[in-house]
């Protein structure tokens, strides 16, 4: 395992921000830690990296019990981005590499190559303070990969980026995975997780509420059907499952567990006919909302 944690606990005052989190990230995988704001994602990542010490539980990073011992093989993009504004871009990238054991000269050379590849070659000698927020964020990401880490930890990497830079970032993450690196990232934007993650955890209220693949997460919800009758749309509702909701000229409802065929026969026999029918797989977004919503209900109870 590239990362493993069991029973991680962190208290801030009387509040248990992280409450017994277990995570296992296999090597070479893109692993997402999803959760709403304040779920404990950042605190979990910071504990895994050894920036803060847990109040309970154990963790290993690239086989080391003390995350500090693996620090040269780890790259990290924190949620609160931070660069020295007076530094030139390639110097900033080389400095971040040097902190992880990469010689400055090698770091400078790689920085230029990485910036060229990311479409930022023109800014290699610009000072950080001259860059836009999105560009600075990309420079910091390049700084976290310049030493070619085995494990890349990205905390909310897409926040604050425009769609073009989000696309660039996704490309960068895939390139790192193709290089053989393990990537652990947190987000609350499901679209990125759905496109990138091999496995994921959903954290809410400081606890892991789900662990598995994207498909597993989506499978926690039944399929949805969208049916548009040919005649008497209003009357068709009486034959549909109780959760059916009117959507324009049609209806949206959960697929019956025994299948849709029998229901369709009933609708045709009743003279409603079929003007349109689509079966929808629930998205990660729906699964996330259900899992997190369930936790909120549990907490309220």
């Amino acid at each position: 395992m590239a990362v493993s944690a069991s029973g991680l606990v962190k208290r801030f005052g009387a509040r248990r921000v992280v409450d017994g989190v277990d995570i296992a990230v296999p090597e070479g995988m893109v692993y997402g830690v999803l959760g709403p704001n304040g779920a404990g994602k950042t605190t979990t990542l910071r504990m895994l990296l050894g920036i803060i010490e847990p109040d309970g539980g154990a963790r290993t990073l690239l086989g080391h019990d003390n995350p500090r011992d693996a620090s040269d093989s780890v790259g990290y993009l924190p949620e609160e981005r931070g660069l020295y504004p007076g530094m030139k871009c390639r110097e900033a990238i080389a400095f971040m590499g040097a902190l992880r054991g990469l010689p400055w000269a090698v770091g400078r050379k790689r920085a230029v190559d990485l910036m060229e590849a990311a479409g930022l070659g023109h800014a290699a000698d610009d000072k950080i303070r001259k860059l836009s927020k999105g560009m600075a964020q990309l420079v910091q990401l390049l700084g976290s990969v310049v030493h070619e880490p085995k494990l890349l930890v990205l905390d909310e990497p897409f926040s604050g980026l425009d769609p073009v830079n989000q696309e660039r970032l996704e490309k960068l993450i895939r390139a790192q995975r193709d290089r053989g690196a393990t990537i652990l990232f947190s987000t609350h934007v499901m679209a990125h997780a759905e496109r990138l993650c091999d496995r994921l955890s959903i954290i809410a209220g400081g606890k892991v509420r789900f662990e598995g693949t994207v498909t597993d997460a989506r499978a926690t919800l039944p399929f949805k059907a969208h049916y548009t009758p040919h005649h008497d749309a209003a009357g068709a509702g009486a034959l549909l499952p109780t959760d059916a909701e009117r959507e324009g000229e049609g209806w949206r409802f959960t697929m019956p567990s025994e299948g849709i065929e029998a229901l369709l026969v009933k609708l045709i026999d009743a003279g409603h006919g079929i003007s349109g029918l689509s079966i929808e797989r629930p998205g990660l977004h729906d699964a996330f909302v259900r899992i997190v919503g369930q936790q909120a209900l549990e907490d309220a109870a």
Partner: peptide, 17 residues
């Protein structure tokens, strides 16, 4: 103060004791 205001401290703290 520089590291705290620039948020660089998080990068340093992750990489260096």
């Amino acid at each position: 103060a520089e590291e705290r205001s620039n948020k660089v401290i998080e990068v340093l703290a992750a990489a260096v004791p």
